[in-house]
Design a protein around this nucleic acid. Structure first.
Lengths: 339, 339
DNA sequence: TTGTAGGCGTTATCAG
DNA sequence: CTGATAACGCCTACAA
């Protein structure tokens, strides 16, 4: 391993000078700078992260709390967060956090100087982990939102706006009778998970404001509940011409079951999903029209917000909401002529 | 931050003694040991990773090469690898590796002392990254297998055995005419991806050895190709009664399209998938019978193998193959009575 | 069994 | 603008 000292010797400067050019931390004359850079290149010198971390008291590591309960849509997010971090000289570590020792773990993470800050995903409306992070004085950024948001940095999907947009779009296509399909998360670890809650509220408000009809279905995750949905829809809301779905399995089930009931998508019924990835569309036949979760944008934004905080640009909290963009599929179309 | 010195002072021992008890690196009398532990607890002392890394020349960090091209089935894997690492005092960092600078990046990763070893997923049959890792003398473990395997540590799904098992199982159910559906990866970044290649070969051998008929379909990833599959199946292999699929979108498409052609699953046709996760079964109606990728087992095995190597237990290479286990769904059944 | 002391490779403070 | 020189917190021979 090449050390800074070796570079300094070879370039006939002091070790501090090498540090200055490497870190751009103090002005150096172009000539010496050039010479040092040259030697660095010749020798293939690289800063040692451990030494750097020890001396600077900064690990340049961001911890991403793991496991993630919702394994469906966060790949893009994680990937972009890792990339954004790396671009700025940070790295993302996966931090498996077991529910039994949340308190200890979160504190130790920062106190031990291992990570400089924390990224927390899949936040519940009331999330113990967030309280712990505040107590531990740990710099953190949420992906998602808790109920209380004062002074908290977060980035999240703008479910409210996405829902409104979806409803608007459907209304524009002539749909008057909508339905919203949500996962029923009662009794699961995701029980307090905010997205469906926010979406339901936004949906009810949106349809009310526009004078539309809107039925909400909470569908559990078991095969029975899912396969019962088409029948339930037919019986309790037969006039529905458009479905907004946040329940992937249900979306697919509808897509394959409806034709057998003589209902063609999108001719007789439109389906759009919210907060999904394009990969769901790739799995469905016809491809689902999806309001795609902006995972890449959010991952990057989260990492950048955290790094900004770590580097002292304090200012007001970063509070970013990004709506989902429509990934056009083939499951949304104009409302059928009314009977 | 509490330092070792502070613990030592308070416990009235030297700093080295604290180190010895903390690391179990030298015998210490039970009394002193107890006393030290006590103080550690009182003060909430935690080792500083940076200092430890610097002094010991070990970062205790495993780098997981990222991004992963195949975003479908590796969540379980990543999660388990992170957990297994953490249990042993290591951490997993996500290392975004861009194809343009593979060489530099991989070398620097290790040379800079940032990571002790590397985990590499989604290995191609001939993978440049593997060559680089060898050149850089970096300890690494593959998840997957290259063509050349001498002396290489890897863990992988046993596609061969899984395929044989699947074929056996179907044969036992009376099926004589099988089909294999694979993704056509030509022209994609995953072109040399080994799983479909190995599976195809295993499938051909298995059906031949058992005197069964076996047709292979390579289906591209576009919606057109996928939706054309049912028709293609009907025309070029109409006698097929069982399908083995490694193409998720195609599996789902078949499931929803076949009934419209008067073919009921599994009454008239069985479908089993290979190397998928249970979440696919959760998305399908009826739930697909899946030979589930052993992501958790492999993730853990990979991390453990790498750590073992890092800690000097050299011995022969770890070469682990784990077959997929059948996650019973409702898409596999006895062959229909022959016409 | 326990203590002493010299690194590990950088950063950062202070002089020059 | 450049150079000495203390830290940073821990590990690990080597001594006692």
């Amino acid at each position: 391993m090449v050390t800074m000292q070796q570079v300094a010797d070879r370039a006939k400067v002091s070790i501090s000078t090498v540090s200055f050019v490497v870190n751009n931390t103090k002005p150096v004359t172009p000539e010496t700078r050039e010479r040092v850079l040259q030697v660095i290149d010749e020798l293939g010198y690289r800063r040692n992260r451990a030494a750097r971390a020890l001396a600077s008291r900064k690990s340049r590591i961001l911890a991403l709390i793991y496991p993630m309960l919702d394994h469906r849509n966060n790949h893009a997010f994680v990937e972009s967060a890792a990339t954004a971090a790396e671009e700025r000289g940070y790295n993302l570590v996966l931090w498996p956090l077991h529910s039994d020792n949340v308190t200890t773990e979160i504190a130790s993470l920062i106190e031990a100087g291992f990570a400089d800050g924390v990224l927390l995903m899949e936040v519940q409306l009331d999330d113990e982990r967030v309280s712990r992070l505040r107590e531990a004085q740990a710099p953190f950024v949420l992906i998602g939102r808790t109920r209380e948001l004062a002074g908290i940095d977060y980035v999240d999907i703008d479910f409210e706006r996405t829902t409104q947009t979806a409803v608007d779009e459907l209304a524009k296509l002539g749909h008057r009778d909508l339905a919203l399909v949500l996962e029923d998360l009662r009794g699961t670890p995701l029980a307090g998970y905010a997205p469906p809650i926010r979406t339901e509220q936004a949906f009810r408000e949106a349809v009310a404001a526009r004078g539309l009809a809107g039925t909400v279905f909470h569908v559990a995750h078991d095969s029975g509940s899912i396969s019962a949905l088409p029948a339930e829809l037919a019986s309790s809301a037969p006039q529905t011409t458009a479905i907004v779905s946040m329940h992937d399995a249900a979306s697919l089930a509808l897509l394959s079951a409806l034709p057998r009931r003589g209902i063609e998508v999108p001719r007789d019924l439109s389906i759009v999903t919210i907060g999904t990835t394009a990969s769901l569309a790739a799995l469905s036949q016809p491809p689902l029209s999806t309001y795609e979760a902006p995972g890449h944008v959010l991952g990057r934004a989260a990492a950048e917000a955290l790094i900004a905080r770590l580097e002292g640009r304090d200012g007001p909290a970063t509070q970013v909401l990004v709506p989902c963009a429509l990934h056009p599929g083939a499951s949304m179309g104009p409302a059928p002529a009314r009977a």
